[in-house]
Nucleic acid binder design. Structure first.
Lengths: 197, 197
DNA sequence: GTTTTTAACTAACATCTGTTAGCCGTATTA
DNA sequence: TAATACGGCTAACAGATGTTAGTTAAAAAC
């Protein structure tokens, strides 16, 4: 149970760091800034974390794991491509909505990961994207979507929309995350779907 | 005429800075890094620019001006809302394609502008977005688009897609910028357009 | 051919950076 | 009650940061 308390305080540090990184960016955030937000001295942070980058790593890879998990659940389902896409979008947005701050860091600050960690992160990311791409391709092959679609453009458009949400979405507003996922997928899918002219 | 040469060298500095800021981010880019890219000493940079932030300012505000100009040309035209949207999208992408590096900086690094400059920038930006929003609203009012659209979501989706382009678009690839704008607007507009069921 | 401009240099500044070492009070555990 | 771990502290480091001052060689303008 010491471990629990330890984690609890450590996660408090990480959460504050996430807020800071989101506001000012990773590189512009100093350990002294972070310490001040917590009301302690900079050196005291190192009782809880090993380095500044360790914080970024845990933020990025924890989010990546949640995104992955969410998509895996969707892939198991035996439904049409457009339905899979819809569920994938809603899942992604739900994961983001659970921690918008970490999501913003995940997507804006990951490039400050060093060397092999950055590499690993990018591999996870491209894998995730490719699995969405596969869903779209499945839809074009079985006739759900238009045949002359540029898959890369489509999937990048989808991802752009998803990834910028933390920048403008207000979780206290009138529109909740499932609703927003629903509308977004409607908007994109109906743009992709072959129309019965 | 001295001014011309001066500008020419100054712009060389700014261009290199744009590349650096894009790769590493503004905060993580040092003046010594920049100097090294140019083969000179850090202090020598100050013969050409007043400060690090001045570089960022000129990058951000120059791009903002070009976006604005492009949209103004479109607004003058007397065409349908969906056509205006199409032209606006193509215009935006064309401006970006003319300088993808500066575009990436414009959109990822503007937050490091200080105080009043950041404020001015954000005002320009929201104005630009609102003018796109107005086009979409025009379309919903005159029956071109579905009535039950969430305008904010739509315009944010559009912007996300546009703004992330510099991250993945390869200008040497097979698909040119007008083509991409065409496809993107097709994808979005046909998602918005009322469908003759 | 003298003056001016351009574009670079060296040296140095004050401050900020991430991080380590070693110490100490308080609360939990044995 | 003694031992341990938690969470903080101060002091300090070695290096990086943006920027200024003053200088100088070469090129352009007069």
């Amino acid at each position: 149970m010491e471990a629990v308390m330890n984690l609890s305080r450590k996660e408090q540090v990480i959460r504050m760091a996430a807020e800071l990184f989101r506001e000012k960016g990773y590189a512009a955030s100093s350990m002294r800034d972070l310490a001040q937000k917590l009301g302690i001295e900079a050196a005291s942070l190192y009782s809880h974390i090993k380095s500044k980058e360790e914080i970024l790593r845990s933020l990025c890879f924890d989010m990546a794991a949640e995104f992955r998990k969410s998509l895996e659940d969707v892939e198991k389902q035996n439904v049409s491509a457009s339905e899979k896409l819809r569920l994938g979008i809603i899942g992604h947005i739900s994961v983001m909505a659970k921690d918008l701050t970490a999501s913003a860091v995940f997507m804006n600050e990951h490039r400050h990961l060093s060397g092999p960690f950055l590499r690993d992160f990018l591999l996870l990311r491209i894998n995730y994207i490719n699995r969405f791409k596969a869903i779209i391709e499945e839809g074009t092959k079985n006739g759900e979507f238009k045949e002359n679609i540029d898959t890369k453009l489509s999937v990048m458009t989808l991802f752009s929309s998803l990834n910028w949400m933390p920048q403008w979405y207000n979780p206290d507003g009138k529109i909740d995350s499932v609703n927003i996922g629903q509308q977004l997928s409607d908007m994109l899918v109906n743009g992709l779907k072959k129309q019965k002219a």
